[in-house]
């Protein structure tokens, strides 16, 4: 039971990741493709945070810690990576949405099959 509970975040990340990839591959509306991409991003962020958790560790904030807790401080590398990745994900999503708006303005549709004019 504890094994299941401990690995639950990782299983959730895998499930969300696969859902996102499935959406990117299957959906025909551009916005839904973008939603799928966001899901993939969230899944990877969830995994990063999950692997950064240390049981019994203390958060690395020096001002509020006792001597004893300072011994157990966790190096927050993964958390820093996750923050960076969230910001990058925001930028990617914003840019892709801007592309989608431009596509709708110039071509009048957001259906992938109707948009596909670059071939061969």
């Amino acid at each position: 039971m504890t094994v299941l509970l401990e690995n639950a975040p990782i299983a959730a990340a895998a499930a969300v990741f696969l859902l996102g990839v499935a959406m990117v591959l299957r959906e025909r509306h551009l916005f839904r493709t973008l939603m799928g991409l966001s899901l993939v991003e969230s899944a990877v962020n969830l995994l990063l945070v999950a692997i950064g958790y240390r049981h019994g560790g203390a958060s690395p904030i020096y001002t509020l810690q006792t001597e004893e807790a300072a011994e157990k401080m966790v190096l927050p590398t993964v958390q820093a990576l996750t923050l960076t990745s969230i910001v990058i994900g925001l930028a990617t999503t914003a840019m892709l949405l801007a592309f989608a708006v431009t596509l709708h303005r110039t071509r009048g549709t957001l259906d992938i099959d109707e948009l596909r004019s670059l071939r061969g």
Binding site: L37, L96, A100, L103, T106, R107, L115
Partner: peptide, 22 residues
């Protein structure tokens, strides 16, 4: 933009790149 053709290429590139980087 190029009548939406360049945007389409850019969208494709950005979406695939972001899958790859993830």
């Amino acid at each position: 933009v190029d009548g939406g053709l360049a945007t389409e290429a850019g969208f494709k590139y950005a979406a695939l790149s972001s899958l790859a980087t993830m």
